[in-house]
Amino acid sequence: MNYHWNWGIFFEQIQGGEETYLDWLLTGFGWTVAVSISAWLIALLLGGLIGVLRTAPHRGLAFLATCHVEFYRNIPLLVQMFLWFFVVPELLPRELSLWVKQDMPAKEFVTAVLCLGLFTSARIAEQVRAGIQSLPRGQRMAGLAIGLTLPQTYRYVILPMAIRIIIPPLTSEFMNIFKNSAVAFAIGVMELTFQARQMQEDSEQGIETYLAVTLLYFICAFIANRGMAFIERRSRVPGFIVGAK
């Protein structure tokens, strides 16, 4: 293998600029974290709501929720990025469409967050539904039998347990969202993968570049994992083992 190693590359200045390559990577890391966390908030709120609706005894609402899930599950994330970036602005009313295309601040970032958030919300909705349905049917009945209304039964009986059950799958989903955020490079968000490609072309030190970026992705995954494990420990119920039924 004929490769010229240069580990000092990160501290060299980019061609024709003031910044170092390290600055590029750190900027990329910042955008990756910003996109992932913002999308995660959208995904949690919307996914939770839709997951609950899918178990509600209301045909119309449940159907709408199913449509949402099927739409986001059956189109590749990258194609969804392009849909949000290129197609959706064309579907808006004329004035709004012009504003989005020309004046909207941080257009790439907002689009990526929206797209990734909605995409992940569909996956979270599935897990919320599965979590709720994995509870014994008798729990719902017991809630209703002491006179709680259906919303009260969800609030006090079903959701507290369902949330605990879905923390492990949510953990891997939280780690996924950092990985999936890489797709945002395609619409020009200057996140890690975008910077990796740019630095590789600019510096021609591909291996060092990719190693550093891979390491940064590892760090994201590790922090996400530890954070969720902390929540899992805090919410443990004595005498109840998740997964054992």
Binding site: Y3, K179, V183, T193
Partner: peptide, 19 residues
């Protein structure tokens, strides 16, 4: 499983010709 697929794609594309 902990790296984005996109990065794996870029890695292989870079490294295989080098090897």
């Amino acid at each position: 499983r902990s790296i984005p697929l996109l990065m794996v794609i870029l890695w292989f594309f870079l490294v295989i010709p080098l090897i």
